[in-house]
């Protein structure tokens, strides 16, 4: 294999940074969901990369579980966004403040 472990880890750090930027700057609920997806994918890339370089099958197995759980998370997140959109007619998270104390 010509690629080293550090290359994959650096790509995953870059993706994590982009995800954190999106979560801290954007107020659009759907874009925040995009950022969460990017962070989850960075984590999956790390799992598979470390599993390849050990080598051990555990990394790929855990990545498969993580992808399946992420699918459930997206379904629930999108339905929450739809409910909030129906209530407020907006997807700006600064408007979702009925629960604010």
């Amino acid at each position: 294999m010509t690629n080293e472990l550090i290359d994959f880890v650096l790509v995953s750090i870059a993706l994590l940074g982009i995800g954190i930027y999106g979560l801290s700057v954007k107020r659009n609920a759907i874009r925040m969901l995009f950022s969460i997806e990017i962070i989850i994918n960075a984590a999956n890339l790390n799992l598979v990369a470390f599993g390849r370089f050990l080598p051990h099958s555990g990394g790929q197995t855990l990545a498969l579980f993580s992808i399946a759980i992420a699918a459930a998370e997206v379904a629930v997140g999108l339905s929450l966004i739809i409910v909030a959109y129906r209530m407020y007619q907006n997807i700006d998270i600064a408007d979702f403040r009925n629960l604010k104390g």
């Binding site: 550090i6 599993g51 390849r52 370089f53 051990h56």
Partner: peptide
Amino acid sequence: GIKSITTDEPAV
């Protein structure tokens, strides 16, 4: 230490 990790072992 992970900077120099490479592998020649076959994939899983």
